[in-house]
Nucleic acid binder design. Structure first.
Length: 562
RNA sequence: UGCCCCUUCGUCCAAUGGCAGGACAUGUGCCUUUGGAGCACAGAAUGGUGGUUCGAAUCCACCAGGGGCAACCA
């Protein structure tokens, strides 16, 4: 079990675990588990839980299992198992053991027989509707099912025949015999087993009765010797049945469940059901679409696992349901990438610059550092410089506003790593659109410094027109226009608040040739633009980069103020 | 309307009966061969009312507000 780093931040769970370790409460080492259902891809919300569970185990010298909570044959698939394993590993964690709730079906069945024998469970043959109606409401007690009085012998017979496959789906269920008037709805004779004549992705057709979450979860924890079962707030009410079951089955020092608030992130959804809908309805290009909050999506987006872990640490763990601002996440991503990735030059919206006093046909190879002075990494590459260049359209204004420091008629600026240039003429087409800028360069400023001490206010990026490579830039933005896409209730149509500009494809961007042969997945900062990663779709000759996140842009604020 | 949980700067998280602190965000300035990064400074909070106490964000009561629970999902 390893975890590369863990939270230095205090939270109520770590304190509880520390106290339990101190008191020797469980009589065994700390054991946690991360228990996803393999019915979808892991997302940023799961990452919080993963960091918590593995982090706690790591900090206290314990172990953390990866357990697939695969008790519903209708929804689960091996492809999700594989994706989940890949994602957990990519995040940097190693599980103590790989477990499957479906491996406990035999054991759980034995528990079921024992409950029946002890008069603590019964087979209910009522319809789904009748069972629901009998449960009562939040303000009124339920009513006992007529089958509640069945003898243990009859129940055992029915249960065995359920297991043997004698009955159709829905004909019978096994229910715990607790209290149909219990104030906690969960405790009104909760269902334990249901019949599903379905092929399970791991167990095949070996079983036709499947445990429900409440039956399987706590007992699975107990079977694995888990000490601290950490889950999200929506399982709060399940804690009662959890305790009831591990007690009835006689576990000594059973695991105990503690709930914490799940992650909610602005402009993001973390409901697997809804993410599945985005995939199925082709609102995104798959589970790993870079706009998805899935681990696979974030990975393709260019986010590093270090950033996700740092983010999890930043947001902390508490019981209060809370939404986190997207800026908090973006900060974690930038903060990580800033210290890690090389800088290169890429012109997003090219406009031609011709240096009228630069010799035709001449090409210089200029030294350019991969990292700025404040990043403790080294490395340089050569960037070709020539008479015709591309610069970004947004770096020129014909009539510059007051605080615009970039290129303008008569204005001198620095070309990063290269020369000072001065714009002498603006060339327009018949429609009056600017098509080219004629500039002069100062040969004495090679490298970017003027021997006479002359200063310029702006430094802009550029590439050699003769040597630049064409590339496609996929500019990703938030997937939703609403901070809370799920506001307004479960059935509100979150599809309607999809951001139509969540992906803007820029073709014809120009990038320096040094990146031409880099591997897929290479990350960069395109200077003054943002962090990018080369996409799996990228090939030599048709380069594709995903924008991971923009740079902070204080000019945008100034410009917006006018 | 029953049960349960929650309520601290704009946001997230600390402070566990003893100076309400950090991060993000925001603003200002410095610095800068990225309008990046960094540095400095600033503003910014204990939902309300009572009570206990020398002392309450913390304990108690009530109120208000928010959330979860009535799938043969997890």
């Amino acid at each position: 079990m390893t975890a590369p780093d863990f939270s230095a931040k205090n939270n109520f769970i770590r304190e509880m675990v520390a106290a339990d370790v101190e008191s020797g409460r469980y009589g065994r080492g700390v054991a946690t588990r991360f228990p996803p259902e393999p019915n979808g891809f892991l997302h940023i919300g799961h990452a919080k839980s993963i960091c918590l569970n593995f982090g706690i185990a790591n900090e206290f010298g314990g172990r953390c299992n990866l357990r697939f909570d695969d008790t519903n044959p209708f929804t689960e698939d091996i492809k999700y198992v594989n994706a989940i394993k890949e994602d957990v590993q990519w995040l940097g964690f190693t599980w103590a053991e790989e477990r499957y709730a479906s491996d406990y079906f035999e054991q759980l069945y034995e528990f079921a027989e024992r409950l029946v024998t002890n008069g603590k469970a019964y087979v209910d043959s009522a319809s789904e509707e009748a069972i629901r109606a009998g449960r009562g409401t939040v303000t009124s007690a339920g009513t006992d099912s007529p089958n509640r009085a069945r003898s243990p012998e009859e129940n055992l017979d029915l249960l065995r025949r359920m297991k043997a496959g004698e009955f159709a789906d829905g004909a019978h269920v096994l229910r715990a015999k607790i209290d149909m008037a219990h104030p906690n709805m969960i405790m009104r004779d909760p269902l334990l087993l249901r019949i599903r004549k379905a092929t399970h992705y791991r167990r095949g057709d070996a079983w036709c009765i499947y445990p429900l979450y409440d039956f399987a979860h706590g007992l699975s924890d107990a079977l694995e010797g888990i000490t601290h079962s950490l889950c999200t707030l929506e399982f709060k009410d399940s804690n009662d049945i959890y305790k009831w079951l591990v007690h009835e089955m006689g576990f000594v020092n059973p695991p105990e469940q503690t709930e914490f608030a799940r992650l909610e992130l602005d402009y993001t959804i973390v409901s697997k059901r809804k993410l599945l809908r985005l995939v199925n309805e082709n609102h995104v290009k798959g589970w790993d679409d870079p706009r998805m909050p899935t681990i696979a999506g974030l990975r393709r987006r260019g986010v590093r696992p270090e950033a996700i872990r740092a983010f999890a640490d930043t947001i902390g763990v508490a019981r209060k349901p809370a939404r986190t601002e997207l800026a908090t996440f973006e900060h974690a991503v930038r903060d990580d990438l800033n210290m890690e990735v090389p800088r290169v030059l890429c012109v997003v919206k090219p406009i031609k610059v011709t240096l009228t006093n630069y010799p035709e046909g001449q090409v210089e190879e200029l030294d350019a550092s991969y990292f700025p002075h404040d990043v403790p990494k080294t490395g340089t590459r050569k960037v070709p410089f020539s008479r015709e260049l591309w610069v970004d359209r947004d770096d020129f204004m014909e009539t510059p506003s007051k605080k615009f420091y970039r290129l303008a008629p008569g204005r001198e600026v620095r070309l990063r790593y290269a020369y000072f240039i001065t714009c002498t003429e603006v060339v327009k087409n018949e429609a009056g659109e600017i098509v080219e800028l004629l500039c002069t360069y100062d040969p004495a400023t090679r490298g970017g410094d003027s021997p006479d001490g002359r200063k310029v206010q702006g430094t802009i990026h550029w590439v050699s027109a003769a040597r630049a490579l064409d590339c496609e830039l996929r500019m990703y933005d938030r997937l939703f226009t609403a901070a809370d896409p799920e506001a307004g209730g479960d059935e509100a149509d979150f599809i309607s608040v999809l951001n139509p500009e969540s992906l803007v494809v820029v073709s014809g961007a120009k990038i320096e040739p040094s990146v031409g042969a880099d591997a897929v997945g290479s990350r960069y900062q395109f200077e003054r633009t943002g962090y990018f990663v080369s996409d799996p779709d990228s090939k030599p000759g048709s380069l594709v980069f995903n924008r991971t996140v923009t740079l902070r842009d204080s000019w945008a604020k100034v410009a917006a103020k006018g």
